[in-house]
Amino acid sequence: MTAATQEASEQRRDEAAQDQEKHAGGKVLHMHTAHPQIPIPYVTPGDLFTGARAGARAATSLLPAPRKLAYYGLLGGMTAAGLLEWPVALAVGAATEVITREQGARARAERGEQERRQATPEPSARMTEPSRPTHTAMA
């Protein structure tokens, strides 16, 4: 391409851009927005009074045991007061949860093993008849 043709093509591009700005009223910004589907429960006043016990039971089932809740609350309080750094508190809380779950799983496995043993008696505890010879005497 020669310099003259290059200059002409740049001039045409500039004119086209100016025409677009005139028609569009300036620069255009295209924005994309996300609209996620979030289910919102519909609660009536009657639901509040008739299902209050069931709702409270469902809400408290999501909370940890009171002793555990107190422990994690104390750990968080110590962190907020500055007695513990947050990475240390996080490590202590995570380690406690892992150990607690592992101990619970081990205890459940032991209980299941004991129940299985009780359901099937040991071979030595079974009552078996002594075997008798099946020989018959010939006369």
Rank of each mutant, 00 (worst) to 15 (best):
P45K: 03
T44C: 00
A137I: 14
P64A: 06
Q114V: 15
T33I: 10
A95G: 07
W86V: 08
A89W: 02
L90C: 04
A65T: 04
E97W: 02
P45I: 06
G25W: 04
Q37N: 09
R108H: 11
P130K: 14
Q103V: 15
E102T: 00
S131L: 15
V98T: 12
Q114K: 14
L83R: 06
S9R: 05
M127K: 12
T5N: 05
Q18L: 13
T96W: 02
A59S: 02
Q11T: 09
R116Q: 09
L84Y: 03
H23N: 02
Q18H: 08
E110F: 10
V43A: 00
G51P: 01
I40E: 05
S9T: 15
Q11R: 15
G112K: 01
P64L: 04
S131K: 12
A8P: 00
A54Q: 04
L69P: 01
S9C: 00
P39E: 12
A109H: 07
M127W: 11
A4F: 06
A95D: 04
G51N: 11
A139M: 04
Q114H: 14
T5P: 00
A34I: 06
L29S: 04
A80G: 03
T120K: 03
A24Y: 01
P121A: 01
A65M: 02
T5M: 11
E7Q: 11
A95C: 05
V98Y: 05
K68F: 13
D19K: 12
G93L: 00
I99Q: 11
R57G: 01
M78S: 01
R13P: 00
R12E: 12
R116N: 04
L84F: 06
S9L: 15
R101K: 12
E115D: 12
H30V: 14
D14E: 08
G73M: 07
T100W: 10
A89I: 07
R106Y: 12
P36F: 06
H32M: 11
P123V: 14
T33Y: 13
R101N: 11
P133V: 14
I38V: 14
P41D: 07
G55L: 05
A58V: 00
R57K: 10
R116W: 11
A54P: 03
Q18A: 15
R53H: 04
A91G: 03
P133W: 13
P133M: 09
G51T: 09
P36E: 02
H35F: 02
Y42V: 15
A65V: 05
M1W: 12
H23M: 12
L74M: 09
A59D: 02
P121F: 07
P87M: 10
S9H: 07
L90E: 07
T100K: 02
D47I: 00
E122A: 15
G25N: 04
P66R: 03
T33Q: 09
R101I: 08
T44K: 03
T96I: 01
A109K: 05
P123R: 07
E113A: 14
E115P: 03
Q118M: 09
P45E: 03
A8N: 02
E85K: 08
V88Y: 06
V43D: 03
T134H: 10
L62M: 02
R57N: 05
P39Q: 10
R57I: 06
M31T: 14
A70K: 06
F49Y: 00
P39F: 15
E21K: 14
P87D: 13
P121Q: 07
L48E: 00
Y42C: 07
M1G: 12
G76S: 13
P123I: 14
